[in-house]
């Protein structure tokens, strides 16, 4: 899975905290993502995975802590280099596929329209089709195609496998693996470990807003003599 890698961090999160209505959702999160790796952000529902991802994408404002992307605070330059797939449909359903291709082309210099169109054609999707005429699954695939057609430095995918059938899961994983740019990193959040384990280089376990375990997937498997899925099940046993 590994692509080109060097030691300076792509993303640094330090002492990040966030609470909603007096409930601590992120508790002193410290994290470093390096280039050229696929990270799995693993945790049960409600562990704080989406909150952490939204905070990295400046959609949620932290109570305290710092996030740096390539040693610079988050802003338009980091947004230009981070390709983010949220866990929901974020496109205007009254628009067409072409409208969204135009939107991505005009705002992201690193958007490869040709690649996106090729992937859309492989799914037999017509560019003039309105999003509201598409099934939810197809809307999700379109979003994934738009995101993965960017030559980004960091891809952040929030629960890309949630609620989809096994065939779609394969499509999603293949799309991710074959399209992320050389030297870039991927952060995938999920609680469906078994489907994703094979592609992960590094894992980050998040529980009750705290990072409880991080490390190389190979190292953890060797150390515990178990799969990541088994380690996850033992760590988060109810």
């Amino acid at each position: 899975m590994k692509k080109k890698s060097n030691s300076s961090p792509l993303l640094e999160v330090s002492h990040l905290e966030k609470s909603f209505s007096d409930k601590l959702i992120l508790d002193d999160i410290n994290l470093e993502l390096k280039p050229g790796k696929i990270y799995g952000l693993l945790g049960k529902n409600g562990a704080g995975k989406s909150t952490l991802i939204k905070t990295i994408n400046t959609l949620i404002i932290p109570d305290s802590g710092k996030i740096l992307f390539k040693n610079r605070p988050l802003g338009p330059s980091s947004k230009a280099e981070i390709a983010y797939l949220p866990e929901r449909t974020y496109l205007d359903l009254s628009t067409t596929i072409k409208y969204n291709l135009d939107l991505f082309s005009s705002f992201y210099k690193n958007f490869d329209r040709k690649k996106a169109v090729e992937m859309l054609h492989s799914l037999d999707l017509d560019e003039n089709m309105k999003l509201k005429k598409m099934s939810k699954g197809m809307q999700e695939k379109l979003q994934l195609i738009l995101v993965m057609s960017r030559k980004a430095s960091l891809y952040i995918l929030d629960e890309p496998l949630g609620g989809v059938d096994p065939a779609t899961r394969d499509f999603i994983l293949d799309t991710i693996l074959t399209n992320f740019a050389d030297g870039s990193s991927v952060l995938i959040s999920t609680h469906l470990i078994s489907d994703i384990e094979r592609i992960l280089d590094e894992v980050i376990f998040l529980n009750h807003g705290k990072i409880t375990l991080t490390g190389s997937a190979d190292y953890l498997r060797e150390k515990h003599q178990k799969s990541i899925d088994q380690i996850f099940r033992e760590t988060f046993k109810c």
């Binding site: 994408n57 400046t58 959609l59 330059s77 947004k79 929901r88 974020y90 205007d92 705002f107």
Partner: peptide, 13 residues
């Protein structure tokens, strides 16, 4: 709301 996930991650201030 939902479309903020797109608009607010566009590379603009």
């Amino acid at each position: 709301r939902d479309e903020a996930y797109l608009h607010r991650t566009l590379p603009v201030e």
